[in-house]
């Protein structure tokens, strides 16, 4: 892929009823970077995330994902309302009807973007291995016939899936817990399993929603290493929301700062650290006051 930016967000607007959660948000994410979305509580970070990952349908603006060799408009695949002009052009009509009927956030994942959740969402009654197998649903042999007859091709595909499972379990250090129920794992293990699960869908960009929340310092450090592995060994772009400033400044190549639904600053960690607007937003301080992040 020649394109430099994997994700382009332009003039994103999101309203909930009368509340304007996002107001004209624009930023780009470079391929192969680790980027962070930060901002005070209520700034709209998670709303941006949910728009990017297709769980909310943005009210306006554009989100374009350039992955898997094509450009995907995330708002379009969620199914847009019909326009008057559609009723004169059958192609546009059926295009929209297709996404209305079969569209949804799963298409965002298939386009190469995967995510984790702020409040962990694992399949708690299933084993750790099964959690990762479900994530490979789109990659394995799903033919009913060959599955029921247990054909060679099916067995090979399942074996490959299991190999990938154990590879990722190795990365997140959970091989010993492979045959436990996901719900029995400790909090830190569950966070790591969720990241492994997101990676099993073979994404080009992975969005982590507060991955370090609730982790102790050594676990956070291990997480930082893991995120570097994702970027360096798997060429995966990482976008994260995080409150742990130490970790954000340590790991990120690029930071977008949100406040009151608007982007107030973007740039490298050093720019952000010294940006008076950011400092003011976080601390509510006057611009000339001395504050260090």
């Amino acid at each position: 892929m020649s394109q430099e930016n994997i994700l382009k967000v332009e003039n994103l607007v999101m309203h909930f009823g009368g509340i304007k959660a996002l107001n004209d948000v624009t930023f780009d994410i470079k391929r192969g970077s680790v980027s962070a979305l930060i901002g005070p509580n209520g700034a709209g970070k998670t709303t941006v995330f949910n728009c990017l990952t297709g769980f909310y349908k943005a009210t306006g603006g554009k989100i374009v994902l350039s992955a898997a060799g094509k450009e995907t408009s995330i708002i379009k695949v969620l199914g847009e309302p019909f326009q008057v002009s559609d009723f004169f052009s059958p192609i546009a009509f059926f295009g929209r009807l297709k996404y209305k009927m079969f569209g949804g956030s799963h298409l965002v994942n298939r386009a190469g973007l995967s995510r984790t959740f702020q409040n962990i969402r694992l399949f708690k009654e299933m084993s750790v291995v099964e959690n990762l197998l479900v994530a490979q649903h789109m990659r394995v042999n799903r033919s009913l016939i060959s599955g029921i007859l247990n054909t060679k091709a099916y067995q090979k595909s399942e074996e490959e899936a299991l190999e990938r499972v154990f590879y990722w379990l190795g990365v997140v250090d959970l091989v010993d817990s492979a045959n436990r129920l996901a719900g029995e794992l400790s909090y830190g293990q569950q966070r790591r399993l969720e990241i492994a699960r997101a990676m099993c869908t073979n994404p080009e960009i992975v969005c982590l929603d507060e991955p370090a929340a609730g982790l102790n310092p050594s676990e956070t450090e291990a997480l930082t290493k893991m995120i570097r592995v994702l970027r360096d060994e798997h060429n995966t772009t990482v976008l994260l929301i995080e409150h742990d400033m130490g970790m954000v400044m340590d790991i990120s190549d690029y930071i977008v700062v949100l406040d009151h639904g608007e982007v107030i600053a973007k740039g490298g960690p050093d720019d952000i650290k010294n940006n008076p607007k950011v400092i003011a937003a976080y601390l509510g301080a006057e611009e000339d006051e001395e504050v260090t992040l």
């Binding site: 994942n109 995967s114 959740f117 969402r121 649903h137």
Partner: peptide
């Protein structure tokens, strides 16, 4: 099989399934 795993996963958490590319419908 994958389909059976998907059914159970859907019973556990639909939102997570969608985030993994499964067409829940």
């Amino acid at each position: 099989m994958p389909i059976g795993r998907a059914w159970e996963a859907l019973r556990e958490d639909e939102v997570a399934c969608r985030s993994l590319g499964l067409n829940h419908v």
